[in-house]
Every structure is written in C-alpha cells, then in structure tokens.
C-alpha cells in the first residue's frame, strides 16, 4: 500500500505570529515548524507502516524553501521519501490553489491513502482534505478521531465527533482521510531517526513538472480577498487575588456585582 501524508510548515503558535501589510502570514522572525496537527497524521501513517511493513510512505508539501524542514521532521519520525513542491508562482495561494497543486502531485504519486490533518494550525480552514478528494474524485473521511485502515479489504474506517452525533464512516480505498489530535499522541523523532532522515530521498518539483499553469495559482488566482485585518485589542488582566480563606466569597461578590448570581 502507498500512503502520502500532506504536511505543512507553519509559524509556531508559541512565537505569536501576525500578518504583513499585504495581509499574508508574517513569517519573518517567526519560528517555523511542522504543524503540530500534521504530526498526528504522520503518526497514523506510521502505525499503518508498523503493522504492514510493505507500506510505502511519502510526505508531500507545497511551500517556500523553508517548508522542506517540515518534510525532514516528518521523515525523522519515520517513512521513506518526501516531495516538496516549490515555485515562486505559488506564493499567496489560497486553499483552492494549494489543493490544485497538491492534487497534481498526488496524481503522480498515485497513493492508495492520502492522509491529512484536520486543519493547519495557521490558516485553520480544514478545507484542503475535502478539496483534494474532489479534485481526485475520491471518497473523503474527514475529522477522524479514530482511524482503522484495513489493507486486506481496501477499506478505511473512522469515528468522528460531529456537531450532532458521533459517527462511524467507511470508505473504499483509494481515499482521502483527515485526522484530529484525538487519534493518539504522535511519536517523537529519535536521534537515529533524525540522522536517517538526512539520507532519505527528498525531491523538489515545480509547477512545470506538474503541468499546473502558473496563472491558476498564487495571489493573482485567489478566489477570496482579505479587505482588512485588525489586531483585536488584547484583554486587560483584571485582579488576581490570593485566596486567604475567603477566595470563594470574593468570587461570589464579583459574580453578584456582574449580575451572574
């Protein structure tokens, strides 16, 4: 079985990312990393690989040069190879354009299973997995809290917590699946894994390699525009009183004052 995990290099939320004047995520001076949610998708792929060692696992990303770091990190966790789609024309792409490029790369990689995270930790739209499924005319199972891959019967099952119900869904492979952080803790790369990752094949493809016209991607092809971004005024900390035996009473006073009691 061939698995491709789509990953993204994102600004680390801990470094308090913001926006540039032209409404893009400001990556300057911000630490980048493999999206923490992607680590869960990598982990799920590695569990399939652990159980079925004839599985071939490739990571795929679209992004600027630094995005290769996310691929190296994933390779350090395990798996075989990585593909980095990079092209100056891609800068400023929205979710549909990113999905278009990823889908073109997936057509070449021909996976049985495409794994994604439920969302990136920066854009956070959750759109890309279902968009890939549409481009590739594949079934989709999204927001998996639990994932079971059955290579023997070429099926994949998930459990998901929807807004009204907990559902179990099934699809036949090939399929696109997105997983949540509920699927289980991601492994930490070992020193050996980090060393081994340096020798694993990492290919770089551009738009011409994929036959994607440059005018279909990038800021110019974006189907949405941002008119304004404003930083919300930070909350101001109120009082934090040490409990000297009457903390509950003071809290009751506060809540009464605010008419909650």
């Amino acid at each position: 079985m061939r698995i491709v995990v789509c990953v993204k290099h994102v600004p680390d939320m801990a470094s308090d990312p913001g926006f540039t004047a032209d409404h893009r995520v400001d990556r300057d001076g911000v630490q980048g990393r493999l999206s923490e949610l992607d680590e869960h998708a990598v982990e799920q792929a590695l569990r399939v690989l652990d159980a079925a060692p004839d599985t071939h696992l490739t990571y795929l990303t679209v992004g600027p040069a630094a995005a290769a770091e996310a691929l190296r990190r994933a390779l350090a966790m395990g798996g075989h190879a990585a593909v980095h789609v990079s092209d100056d024309a891609i800068a400023g792409s929205d979710a549909p354009a990113t999905a278009l490029v990823l889908a073109a790369a997936l057509r070449r990689l021909e996976p049985d299973l495409v794994l994604c995270a439920m969302a990136s930790t920066d854009g956070g739209t959750s759109l890309v997995p279902a968009m890939l499924a549409e481009h590739l005319a594949l079934p989709q199972l999204t927001f998996a809290a639990e994932l079971t891959v059955e290579p023997g019967t070429a099926t994949v099952r998930i459990r998901r917590d929807g807004s009204r119900a907990t559902e179990e869904l099934r699809a036949t492979l090939p399929a696109v699946v997105s997983v949540t952080d509920r699927t289980g803790e991601a492994r930490y790369p070992s020193f050996k894994g980090i060393m081994a990752a340096k020798k694993k094949p990492l290919e770089t493809w551009n738009l011409a390699d994929l036959g994607v016209p440059a005018d279909q991607v990038g800021a110019g092809a974006a189907r949405t525009v941002v008119d304004a971004i404003t930083a919300r005024p930070p909350r101001t900390a109120g009082t934090a009183l040490p409990d000297e035996g009457e903390g509950g009473l003071r809290l009751a006073d506060f809540l009464s004052g605010q008419k909650f009691v």
């Binding site: 079934p139 119900a165 907990t166 559902e167 179990e168 869904l169 099934r170 699809a171």
Partner: peptide, 8 residues
C-alpha cells in the same frame, strides 16, 4: 463510496 456505518 463514503458511507456512514453508524450514527449515535
């Protein structure tokens, strides 16, 4: 090809 098997 996407089926809901059960729903609680």
């Amino acid at each position: 090809r996407t089926h809901v098997v059960s729903r609680a």
